[in-house]
Design a binder for these strands. Structure first.
Lengths: 239, 239
DNA sequence: TCAAGGTAAATTGTCGACAATCGGCGCGCC
DNA sequence: GGCGCGCCGATTGTCGACAATTTACCTTGA
């Protein structure tokens, strides 16, 4: 179930447009195209070796995922998300992933819970070996939340979080080269969430998950306030 | 702010595809095309008097809103939503609109709160005059939730609920010709929610909104169980 | 008679060309 | 000298035709 947890790369998708969606999304999320960059249709069509037809379809799909901003008759540019947008999204995550944790506690199979414990053990191990984290912790955190969302067994919830929310969060993390906020504390919170799920205590699981995400949001808000008082280049140009 | 609360009809939109989106969405939500109906591209293009290009764009947009189901190289049909899907959506609504109520309590202006009271008074009046309700209550209920969502002043939340969730809920209501579940009780619950918002008690507002939606979901679940035991034509063919 | 294979029609996916609209530039007027 | 107007290039929106894939039907054989 861990095959490229957040889809992206489906090499032989049925239609051309699907492949362009995957490639263009990667280029956006991974930062090949910086936020605010204008993307001309002809230019992109040449880059991906397709006609403008499928390319336009890809653009519309990524626009509906809020990864691109388009103005009719003018053009499309990579969505440049402000810190306030990210904070708004964290409110949504708090509500949605809280519910996901509750449903996961009610509906996850015992095997899935066991898998969560294994994932946690892996994260602790990586944390011990490599104190500065970086990539692993980032992907791992995503993977943890990803599994709980899947564990809710609620299709609508899964579609919303994985289809509309998570791509944007991923983009943020790459753009701001955000090292996860509070590695050790986050890991401890993850463990408590799994405990609640294992105990089939949905209410507790939701409470803990909401608190977990809420703390991340508060960290972001504090960071934003200090950025406002000392406005420095928002991107990754600080040695 | 109440001009066509759930958009749909923008008569002179900038691009052709936008107009087709609006018209096709109306035809789907209002039941002109029944769920499961196969929609051929040529057929639709003729119906709306456009080429297949803009039509395909419209189809993709409505597909991303979950109003259409498409299979590559096969075709698109009107999304036929099962009762279990609706129940899943209500879980999402519970989480999302609960958060919306909390944020509304924190961020709504006094004028907006006053507007909520006026809306409630209008609903009570209509309820007194016309005991059997039907349309007014249905639209009114939507309008109440709509306003609280807007009152959250959270763009991400608003986009999600109004752009991804509410169209599907509307479609359900028309398809099953669902008379609102519990008119009087719902109205009383609405009043208590507004009281909490006016008192700026976000926690209470969220709790009440979640309970409100949760009860509607439980009603749906009970209805589904009795439908399963006595399976009758699910659509509107009962005199 | 039924199953399996192939073929043909219909539908969707893709492409290149044409038309409409917007932003930028220079000219003229105040 | 500054402001407004109109033209021009560039980009996007739209269209019709061609190619690819699927489905349904028909034929053929066991």
């Amino acid at each position: 179930m861990s095959e490229s947890a957040l889809d992206s790369s489906a090499s032989d998708s049925r239609t051309l447009a699907d492949r362009v969606v995957a490639r263009l999304q990667d280029d956006i999320v991974l930062g090949v195209f910086k936020p605010g960059t204008k993307l001309g249709e002809a230019e992109l069509a040449a880059r991906y070796g397709v006609s403008r037809g499928p390319l336009r379809e890809a653009i519309r799909r990524l626009e509906s995922r809020k990864l691109l901003e388009r103005i009719p008759h003018v053009g499309t540019r990579v969505a440049s998300l402000k810190a306030t947008d990210l904070i708004e999204i964290y409110r949504v995550r708090e509500a949605l992933e809280g519910m996901a944790a509750r449903l996961a506690a009610e509906h996850m199979s015992d095997a899935e819970v066991a898998g969560l414990w294994e994932l946690l053990a892996l994260h602790e191990q990586q944390q011990d070996l490599q104190e500065d984290i970086a990539y692993y912790q980032r992907a791992g955190d995503l993977d943890f939340h990803y599994r709980i969302i899947q564990g809710s067994h609620n299709g609508a919830l899964i579609d919303l979080l994985l289809g509309e929310i998570y791509h944007r969060v991923r983009m943020f993390r790459y753009q701001f080269s955000m090292t996860p906020n509070r590695p050790k504390k986050a890991l401890a919170e993850h463990r408590r969430i799994v405990e609640a799920i294992e105990a089939r205590d949905g209410e507790m699981a939701e409470l803990l998950m909401r608190r977990h995400i809420s703390r991340a949001r508060e960290y972001l808000e504090a960071q934003q306030r200090q950025d406002l008082s000392a406005p420095q280049p928002p991107l990754s140009e600080r040695t």
